[in-house]
Design a protein around this nucleic acid. Structure first.
Lengths: 207, 207
DNA sequence: TACACTGGCAACCACGTGTTACAAGCCCCC
DNA sequence: GGGGGCTTGTAACACGTGGTTGCCAGTGTA
């Protein structure tokens, strides 16, 4: 098996297919066509088939792709088949919305711990997790082999929380706030950017 | 003035620059270099200069770009200079987190109304808005000339809420849930996809 | 004055993607 | 059983975009 890295484009698209497939499965579907995936992801149907056919023959002509099978295969390709432990910092409204959503679980991410620096929140329960003190972050990250940290704190606390994550050994930070965060070179930061996408969409709507 | 449409790539990047600039401004900065924008957006510094220089000379050699000025110019280019009214559906944890965040306001989006179908929530206050019944959506959209609707409802209610938005005349829907939504061809749907980005990031982290 | 830094260009190249076209396989309906 | 409509898989081609490199022109600083 060649260990060629996927190009960024392919990896990004595969991840998006996966989201559509996961959701379609939830809706009880068991097969789906490349065209339909394209409608939901805004990706050319030919492109989708080309992406997938590069790794094997996953579809049935005249029918489409079996959803369960395709999910399994894409997970294999992305090498994210197993469960991954992540930590969540911030137990406010946003944090609890995230913790109680099934989004992460649906994609194989297990929220290994919820942390907050506010003593008033520590010890409380959100969903089925209880909120721990940020001071315990290091232990949790090391014990559970956590690579990904999700930041759901106010802008003002983002850098501090990010520093805590970095110090604990997290390598990928997903930042829900708009704050700009400085990290060492070996830590990558991703931002949730709904507003950016809306701006983008708005431009093309206004022609 | 030529009305050439920007390419999708340029428009997307400009929007992202805008986010970085907005945030840098908040931090008290008043100028920034292309290289620094590149670090936060993962865009090549030369690419950034090329994007910007296509519309005029915005920067000062040896110094960088004046943040206020650049924000104004990019807003002009994206033709999203003014205030835009948007509506928010869903007054749960996620909805109230969104409503009380300054993200939208920072980029010129005014939340013209918050709606929920749950009678228990209608009439309550989140942030400085009071929650209205979804039945009043049509009037609000027409009155305030709303183009963008933000969906912060559970998966199960997403399609129904989207239908309400479409019926009211909204043209761009931003869906915070993972649900797949069917809309008429003239309505575009965008999804928040933190999990997709994490999957993507994780692949490249695992090499 | 000398130097380091930064934007503005230009030219070239590699890659990815859109497009078109077509054969092969599968399903359903007649 | 046969025919027609779908859908995948695949190839070939053109185009656009972005990465890269290199250089010059201003700016601020030592």
């Amino acid at each position: 098996m060649e260990s060629d890295r996927l190009t960024v484009g392919v990896a990004a698209r595969l991840s998006r297919y996966l989201q559509v497939l996961t959701q379609a499965k939830k809706m009880g579907r068991d097969s789906i066509s490349s065209q339909e995936i394209g409608e939901y992801t805004n990706v050319n149907a030919t492109q989708i088939r080309r992406d997938l056919s590069g790794f094997g023959k996953f579809g049935k002509r005249g029918v489409g792709y079996n959803i369960d099978f395709l999910i399994t295969e894409i997970r294999k390709i992305l090498r994210t088949s197993g469960q991954h432990n992540i930590v969540l910092i911030g137990a406010g409204r946003l944090g609890s919305a995230i913790a109680s959503s099934s989004t992460f679980a649906d994609h194989g991410f297990n929220i290994a711990g919820v942390f907050d620096s506010d003593p008033a929140k520590v010890g409380s329960e959100i969903g089925d997790k209880h909120v721990q003190d940020v001071a315990d972050l290091v232990a949790a990250v090391r014990e559970r082999n956590v690579i990904v940290g999700v930041l759901a704190v106010p802008e003002g606390a983002a850098q501090e929380a990010a520093d805590a994550l970095v110090g604990a050994g997290v390598k990928i930070i997903f930042n829900y706030s708009d704050a700009l965060i400085d990290t060492p070179a070996d830590v990558t930061v991703h931002r949730s950017s709904p507003v950016v996408e809306i701006l983008h969409a708005l431009y093309f709507h206004l022609t």
